[in-house]
């Protein structure tokens, strides 16, 4: 029977008797914020299959910012050395610390071939850090038209900018404007 842990969680000190679960495979998630943007690496997640990965990806990487399309690929598929004739999606990480950004596509016979084509067609003489490539057929796409990602209802309650104005007014009512400016310097405004 499930008791209500909110009232009094059972304090247990004996050994865990639940089974360890096998690790879920890791998926790489790319999001596209506007139609004119390229798909950019948002992060990774662990999920047992593509459908669960898509659900998690929407929750973790899609719903808290404007997002019109997502791509999801199995991390192992980015490493595969098997020959596979396909159109490859190509991503470049220009510097260490950067996110991988989609630069285009190439028809190729393997990942190695795809990455060579990426260098000649999209990188050229420029410096870059790493390239990722994935056969188009291995990429799972979520299109904002068919599967809801970003909700068009009012989301201001869950964004900093939804509070900026009213909070500033409330501070201005009790503190000198310059003091409020100083106080707000640490606000991480670039993240709003």
């Amino acid at each position: 029977m499930i008791t209500n842990p909110r009232i009094k969680p059972p304090i247990v000190t004996d050994e865990l008797n639940t089974q360890e679960v096998h690790a879920f495979p890791v998926w790489e998630v790319f999001t596209k914020k506007k139609e004119t943007d390229a798909h950019t690496h948002a992060g990774s997640l662990s999920a047992p299959n593509a459908q669960m990965a898509a659900n998690f990806a929407r929750e973790h990487y899609g719903q808290d910012q404007v997002c019109c399309s997502m791509w999801i690929g199995l991390r192992d598929d980015f490493k595969s050395t098997d020959a596979c004739e396909d159109t490859y999606e190509l991503f470049v990480q220009w510097n260490a610390g950067d996110r991988h950004v989609h630069v285009g596509q190439a028809n190729a016979s393997s990942r190695e071939d795809a990455e060579t084509k990426c260098k000649t067609e999209f990188v050229g003489d420029k410096e870059f850090y790493t390239i990722w490539s994935l056969p188009h057929q291995a990429m799972h796409a979520i299109d904002g038209d068919e599967d809801m990602i970003w909700r068009t209802t009012d989301q201001s309650y869950r964004l900093a900018k939804g509070y900026s104005k009213i909070v500033r007014q409330k501070w201005d009512a009790i503190r000198a404007s310059k003091e409020v400016d100083d106080y707000q310097k640490e606000d991480l405004k670039d993240t709003f």
């Binding site: 808290d64 900093a160 909070v167 993240t191």
Partner: peptide, 9 residues
Amino acid sequence: NMEEAFHFK
């Protein structure tokens, strides 16, 4: 940090 900014505001 983007989300922390919301929590803080």
